[in-house]
Nucleic acid binder design. Sequence first.
DNA 1: AAGCTAAAAAATGAATGCAAAAACTGCGAA
DNA 2: TTCGCAGTTTTTGCATTCATTTTTTAGCTT
Lengths: 251, 251
Amino acid sequence: MTGTSLDTQEIDAPNSRPADEMLGEPLRAAPSLHDGLVAALRDYIVEGNLADGARIPERLLCEKFGISRTPLREALKVLAAEGLIDLLPNRGARVRAFSDEDLRELFDVMGGLEALAGRLACERISDEEITEIEQVHHEMYRFYLRRDMHGYFQRNQEIHRLIVEAAGNATLNATYASFAGRIRRVRYAANLDKERDRWGEAMREHEAILDALRRRAGSELSDIMFQHLRNKRKAAQHQSDAQTSERSAPS
Amino acid sequence: MTGTSLDTQEIDAPNSRPADEMLGEPLRAAPSLHDGLVAALRDYIVEGNLADGARIPERLLCEKFGISRTPLREALKVLAAEGLIDLLPNRGARVRAFSDEDLRELFDVMGGLEALAGRLACERISDEEITEIEQVHHEMYRFYLRRDMHGYFQRNQEIHRLIVEAAGNATLNATYASFAGRIRRVRYAANLDKERDRWGEAMREHEAILDALRRRAGSELSDIMFQHLRNKRKAAQHQSDAQTSERSAPS
DNA sequence: AAGCTAAAAAATGAATGCAAAAACTGCGAA
DNA sequence: TTCGCAGTTTTTGCATTCATTTTTTAGCTT
């Protein structure tokens, strides 16, 4: 599977916003430069193509992406700043291995960001947006009844994304996306088939979220969102523990 | 003043943690590489040496820091990822100009992070840590009585920093620091001499913060912290407006 | 003189080259 | 066999170089 080399093509593609300055736009963030490479590399790592503490061979990636070392190194620096990889002086880049403590922290920060999103969303969300979220919620509920994990998770994510968007804060949105990216690598593995008990609980929590949102009870929603993430974390942790003990004691 | 060239010396200096891997440490974030350059550049920009939307001349900075373009460009990429500068394809880097909307967003995100910090702090803070914060609070109060703005602000910042630290979440801490850095450039200018009315209010809010902290009322403290930042934002905004109208109508 | 076009100059993005640092290899000693 | 060590190979970090793109400048037309 050398599909990655194709991605390189796509990198240059979205270069298409030349009229920005005409519009009085104060020329915001780089519309798109070869840092599309950053996105490509990020995906490459997030998708788990590289083992956890694995060394990242510049050479190999250069070939894979068809570029020279200079832009690749720039991308690595950015990814390191994002916390996705570790950069060791004279010793190259490694995929960052998240410890349990790191995950605990990440979940809490995500919880804090979602709590904020909920609070802000209550201040400005429109009835239409709420209706949209409710629809996705009902879709999710159907997947829940069918025990369709994949669909369920997808709607779940969607709801959280919609709430963050409803907050109407681009900075928050970007930050949230960044953290979500960091966790995704883990969540990939932790897509609990077991812990189905959590499902019902999560559904109830989501109903509480919708309720608070409808009432525009910002501070209350903030609490619920944080607790929701806390519970998510506990479930993930529980599952992680289970996996570990499975490995150490394979009957 | 060409003192900046001296900074280049200091950059390489703190390279002194070679025994890390011996200690079973999983080799965390780059202990220190020439990305000290990133820190130097960040400071250089934050301190306001470059005008707001000003173009950042690679050439000039290379000379200033005594390095070639390659490492400088790497640093610029990182700073762009942090949101401190804008990178425009083929058109170089510019100091990012924060719009009022950007500031509004930044303040809210800071508020969200501090709300989270307060919540987490309530879960784990020790009586000793609370005592420490109380002490700084009393110092701050003395500066308040003396109308010593500088001392007051310093303690104020210190208290917020202590609360974030008390949260015991390194990820949160790093994120908070990053955002604080982004705002610092603005706060530099917005060090309101006027708006003294805000002082008393802020003092009262800080007392409420301490009270909630003592009672370990996480959710409540979370609310207070967010509102505290909201009020701060409003004060800053008000002042910014005042300055603007002053400029446009200088009677 | 104002406006437009074209050439020159400068700056950017990326590739290559080179010195220094790490990792690896094979050999010999305990 | 295991450990240590010198020599080789690989990799990293940075400087330099090259091709484009942008910006500036000069000249020409109206």
